[in-house]
Amino acid sequence: MTMADARQIVCIQCPQGCTLRAEKLGTVPSYEITGNKCPRGRAYAIKELTNPSRTLTTTVATVFSDCPLVSVRTDGDIPLRDVFRAMQELNSYRAKKRLHPGEVMIADLAGTGVALLATSDMITPDTTN
């Protein structure tokens, strides 16, 4: 995932999906980014050139028979190259604690330093009526 000196990048920060042009300038790198409509685009483009990373969303098994499978996501991006390694770790993981959405399930996922959050509700009873 190393880059050529100039690259076109589709920004994935929001649904607009801006097409960015990113260029690395000089040996002490500085970057010229064009095409972005907001500052998040610039940050994304630099990240994409240096260390592309993504939020991982998937499911994990639990020990609870009423919710044997729950959805999870990383609390922020992890390096793209670590995604499959993280998936492998999660394949044999089993959640043993009931959590609300947004609560931390794993503090450091696969050595990325990024936490894994539960995203589905493992606590509230099924119905409210």
Binding site: V60, A61, P68, L69, N91, S92, Y93, R94
Partner: peptide, 8 residues
């Protein structure tokens, strides 16, 4: 999808 799910 999950090895763990089978064990479980």
């Amino acid at each position: 999808t999950k090895n763990a799910a089978v064990d479980c």
